[in-house]
């Protein structure tokens, strides 16, 4: 079979032009696509984090530019606002920890969930266990939480994890970021 050098070059040129054009269109629409990507919102079962709530809906609120808050959604039961789901990113010992914090309209942390992390196996990864996340349950959002090593003595204290202080502190920081955001922007309805 005779190979046509000229047309092979034209074909290569066509491939390059098409690639550049595709890339250009993607870059032009990138922001729009990112906007549509609701990420991991779908795999959160809000009824376990905020008892009574059945749906998550986007709410109209300004999210801080610094990236500490990733997403804020309203948790509803039959169109009645029951609370908020606030997603935050926080720096752990080795990785970024993504959290979902549910705070009721009454100002109580009804539950938290570690969405993703990459902490040390066997130590830091205990932050994702229910045994740890349940320690945040029913804490008040009136004040910021503190991590303590011993048994808790006050209501705003969270017992840490031995061998995973930094990871546990990161989770507390993340929850506090959500609590601060709640107190500044969401408290008392909007």
């Amino acid at each position: 079979m005779k190979i046509d050098a000229k047309w092979t070059l034209i074909l290569v040129a066509l491939v390059i032009v098409c690639s550049i054009a595709t890339g250009g269109i993607y870059v032009a629409l990138e922001d729009k696509i990112a906007e549509n990507d609701f990420g991991d919102g779908d795999d959160i079962d809000i009824s376990t984090l905020l008892p009574g709530a059945t749906d998550l809906k986007k709410i109209d609120i300004d999210i801080p530019e610094d990236g500490s808050i990733r997403d804020v959604q309203g948790a509803y039961e039959n169109n009645e606002l029951k609370g908020y789901l606030i997603k935050t990113d926080t720096e752990g010992a080795y990785s970024t920890i993504s959290l979902a914090v549910a705070i009721t309209t009454e100002g109580t942390i009804s539950g938290i969930e570690v969405l993703s992390h990459n902490e040390t196996e066997g130590l830091g990864d205990e932050i994702a266990d229910e045994e740890f996340t349940n320690r945040f349950k029913d804490k008040t959002a009136d004040s910021l939480l503190k991590l303590v090593e011993e048994d808790t003595s006050a209501d705003d204290e969270i017992q840490g994890l031995s061998g995973a202080t930094i990871s546990a502190q990161a989770v507390v920081d993340g929850v506090n970021t959500a609590v601060e955001f709640y107190n500044e922007q969401l408290k008392g309805g909007n």
Binding site: L11, L14, C18, T22, I25, Y26, L29, K32, I33, N36
Partner: peptide
């Protein structure tokens, strides 16, 4: 040529759909 063009147009349609018909 046919395959390159089909692939190109398919990619563009896919990108536009991602943006406007999520």
């Amino acid at each position: 040529f046919y395959m390159v063009l089909v692939a190109f147009l398919t990619s563009i349609i896919y990108i536009i759909t991602q943006a406007y018909l999520p």
